Amino acid sequence: MAQELKRHGKAFPPVEVAGIVPPRPEGAEPWQSEAAPKDGFHVLRHTYASKMLEAGESV
């Protein structure tokens, strides 16, 4: 199981590590990211979900 988790971590790195979501700016609150500095990651997550639904993805 540990090997599978390690493989999964390499195949699917955290979104900030993968460059999908830029890292938080220095001094930002934990819920803020460079991609959504005013409203935080929550709004970014819902925006992404909405765009995926518009594109026909199932949730």
Rank of each mutant, 00 (worst) to 15 (best):
8 H>G: 03
23 P>N: 06
2 A>R: 14
27 G>Y: 07
51 K>Y: 09
13 P>L: 06
59 V>D: 07
53 L>G: 00
11 A>K: 09
8 H>I: 08
14 P>S: 01
25 P>G: 15
43 V>Y: 09
7 R>W: 04
4 E>K: 12
25 P>D: 15
56 G>W: 03
36 A>H: 08
40 G>D: 03
35 A>P: 01
58 S>F: 02
25 P>R: 15
12 F>C: 08
49 A>K: 15
20 I>F: 11
51 K>V: 04
46 H>P: 00
45 R>E: 12
11 A>C: 02
1 M>R: 13
33 S>R: 08
28 A>C: 09
13 P>G: 06
22 P>E: 09
41 F>P: 00
2 A>E: 13
42 H>A: 15
32 Q>T: 01
57 E>L: 14
34 E>R: 13
38 K>T: 14
30 P>I: 08
36 A>F: 09
21 V>W: 00
58 S>G: 01
6 K>E: 15
49 A>V: 12
39 D>N: 14
26 E>H: 10
26 E>P: 13
1 M>I: 11
55 A>C: 05
11 A>N: 06
59 V>Q: 11
35 A>M: 07
17 V>E: 15
4 E>R: 10
15 V>K: 04
56 G>V: 01
19 G>W: 07
49 A>R: 15
20 I>S: 05
58 S>C: 06
20 I>Y: 10
24 R>L: 00
51 K>N: 11
36 A>T: 02
17 V>R: 04
1 M>Q: 12
41 F>L: 13
11 A>S: 08
15 V>P: 07
